[in-house]
């Protein structure tokens, strides 16, 4: 029904199949007996003789002890496999990636200093550990095909690990309700084979991929980093002000002070959004991208915003 893309996921499925088998057995057993009794002892008339049975101690003990044993087996099997799902193998190297969850996008930070948004890029066949934190409310990081999930919490680091078997693309979902666009807080894991990965680590590009122009890169970042969820490019008012004709626009802050949108203002808004709040919009909504976007990326975004014009 759903593929398993890691070794551990396949073992989790074995546990699942074992439990499903157990469930099927008990479901059928209970309801077959129920239906059999319903039909077999259906009332035939007002004078039916019924057995005056009030209970049976032996049966009572048997059907207490057997479920006890069975659930202990399930519990034990579950813990054993979960240990491997949860704890990265001890004396093997792990590649650690930082994850930040924020309304409503994911950012990833790699050991070489590179960052990506909504797209987690990892090498195949490597133990990957994600160290996760949220910059606003609680989110949860879920990759169904790896059978891993862990909440992403402000002020507390959580982790998960996996080792993807094959190159490919897999869904990332946010599974802790985090507000309006919770259902659009989606991402992808891109698992690369060794060659591709080596190239990406060095250049930030897939094999055969051309470097984007600043404008193209700005547009991509604007989408991948979740700006689009809060800032429309068509004039609609979402959580934040529209970016249509934003550059050069004059407006006021909640404090009453007037300002004009220029390069520095945009850069500051991205890094320290809560220093000034635009009048008519809530504070503490926009997450800070300080440290998640490099200066060159911010300048690409500005290049893009300048081009969002009506006419």
């Amino acid at each position: 029904m759903i593929s398993d893309a890691t070794e551990v996921a396949a073992r989790v499925d074995m546990v699942q199949i074992f439990i499903f088998g157990m469930m099927a057995f008990w479901f059928i057993a209970c309801n077959a007996v129920l239906v059999y009794f319903m039909l077999r002892y259906r009332r035939k008339g007002p004078d039916d003789k019924v057995a005056n049975i009030k209970g049976n101690h032996t049966l009572e003990i048997v059907w207490t002890v057997i479920p006890c044993i069975l659930v202990l087996i399930i519990f034990y099997y579950g813990v054993v496999v979960w240990k491997d799902l949860r704890v990265p193998p001890k004396d093997e190297p792990v590649y650690e990636i930082g994850v930040t969850g924020q309304k409503w996008s994911w950012s990833f930070k790699y050991p070489n200093g590179a960052t990506t948004g909504n797209e987690l890029i990892v090498p195949q066949g490597t133990n990957i550990k994600l160290n996760m934190i949220s910059s606003d409310v609680i989110h949860s990081f879920f990759i169904p095909e790896f059978r891993v999930k862990e909440d992403v919490i402000p002020s507390m680091y959580t982790y998960l690990w996996f080792n993807a078997k094959h190159a490919g693309e897999y869904n990332i979902f946010c599974t802790e309700y985090c507000g309006k666009d919770h259902s659009h807080m989606l991402g992808k894991v891109r698992v690369l084979d060794a060659d591709n990965w080596e190239n990406w680590e060095k250049t930030g590009l897939m094999l055969g991929e051309e470097r984007l122009t600043p404008l193209e890169n700005g547009e991509k970042l604007f989408a991948d980093r979740g700006c689009k969820g809060c800032h429309s490019v068509d004039g609609a008012k979402l959580v934040g002000p529209t970016m249509l004709d934003a550059f050069g626009r004059s407006a006021t802050f909640a404090s009453g002070e007037a300002y004009t949108v220029d390069d520095n203002y945009i850069a500051n808004s991205i890094k320290y959004p809560n220093n000034q709040i635009v009048a008519g919009y809530p504070a503490n909504q926009m997450p800070s991208f300080d440290g998640q976007l490099s200066d060159s990326e911010i300048s690409d975004i500005i290049t893009y915003i300048k081009t969002i014009k009506s006419e």
């Binding site: 989790v12 699942q16 439990i19 469930m23 399930i74 813990v79 979960w82 891993v148 999930k149």
Partner: peptide, 18 residues
């Protein structure tokens, strides 16, 4: 019976909040 895979650690990680 569907509570069983939710009580089991290995499987609940996947099923939780779905």
């Amino acid at each position: 019976l569907t509570g069983l895979p939710l009580a089991t650690l290995a499987t609940d990680v996947h099923l939780h909040d779905t």
